[in-house]
Write a protein that binds this DNA or RNA. Sequence first.
DNA 1: CAGCCCCAATGAACCAGGTCAAGAAAAACC
DNA 2: GGTTTTTCTTGACCTGGTTCATTGGGGCTG
Lengths: 195, 195
Amino acid sequence: MNKDPLKNYVQSLVPLTDDEADAFVAPFEERRVKKKQFIVQPGFTNRHRAFVLEGAFRSYAVTPDGQEHTLQFAIENWWVSDFNSYIYQHPATLFIVALEDSTLLQITRVQEEALKASSHTFETVFRIMAEKGLAFEHRRLLINLSHDAEARYENFLLNFPNFVQRVPQYALASYLGMTTEYLSRIRNRRTRQES
Amino acid sequence: MNKDPLKNYVQSLVPLTDDEADAFVAPFEERRVKKKQFIVQPGFTNRHRAFVLEGAFRSYAVTPDGQEHTLQFAIENWWVSDFNSYIYQHPATLFIVALEDSTLLQITRVQEEALKASSHTFETVFRIMAEKGLAFEHRRLLINLSHDAEARYENFLLNFPNFVQRVPQYALASYLGMTTEYLSRIRNRRTRQES
DNA sequence: CAGCCCCAATGAACCAGGTCAAGAAAAACC
DNA sequence: GGTTTTTCTTGACCTGGTTCATTGGGGCTG
């Protein structure tokens, strides 16, 4: 079981000794997930925080009228969870599904608490992760509020070019807050203009 | 200078001894701000994290075409900052303005780092603040993606009834992602139906 | 307490983006 | 490798929300 990507990720946030890094990743367990398999579903509490070693995920909500709204994509070196469910340990409202055959490193909330309690430095790691996540969501919110559909798509292309090929278009559309049909038209407009 | 509200706030996140609570709030300085005064402006780095003792604030971005987009409101017991500017210490993109004569408790980024370094427990405080903030923004994002204008307004009324009377309607509209005119129509529709 | 200015309300025309339906094109499956 | 299922595209039409312009209140400020 190769935990190096997670070690490298943590080291990029906070410098750790080799021993510290080993201690940090120790409670994480590998989990393999097949494409289309769900790792979180509404009604069940999301007990793990998961780091993607390989593959791709999508978290989304389904409204009463059946529409899907994508909150997050995650590929290698990203985290996935229904964050509200995970930190408050109450039932999830989101689905999280594998978009490809994938491998995760996951930790339970209880183990995470132990990790944070065991070391000031580990507490710092989680603090920084949350702060960066929060800063990220502020940027996303602002883009959503201030840009029209086409500009949001352009922005996504620019910031996450490596996601575009790996996520289905209807999922991307629902992440960007528009319909599949409209995203299709935007793409069409653009590729026609380019030539 | 009364730092009790901040002490109580911190204690509500993590239990602290009186001495610890005193140490935590020590580096915070009081600042009084008049209505319409700016505490953050684009181009200048946001050097402080501020806790509202009294009054109300609004953070917003202005797009090239002159439209304003409100990211956050803050009243008593809330924090305000251009979070991206504050944590990365690079120039702000937001304005933050006082909606009323207000009093803040503010700490610089450097002092905050010292506070976190001095105590595992204080690090935990900031970790929890960031996590709760992140969970909050996830909920907001989902509402923005999945609800139409009227439902977003209803939702705001329900969750933040005490903000409604204190923020100008054009600011609320831009927070909810609609025009002032449309919010006015929604309110009108609703009050007519109620009677 | 008059005057001004900012803010909310309202109407009419307009448009970005959604909806519905029906094919085309990929994947997935056996 | 053919068939079934899922995703993407395209067209015609529709609507929630915007834009622009005007009028009517408050509430500061002198």
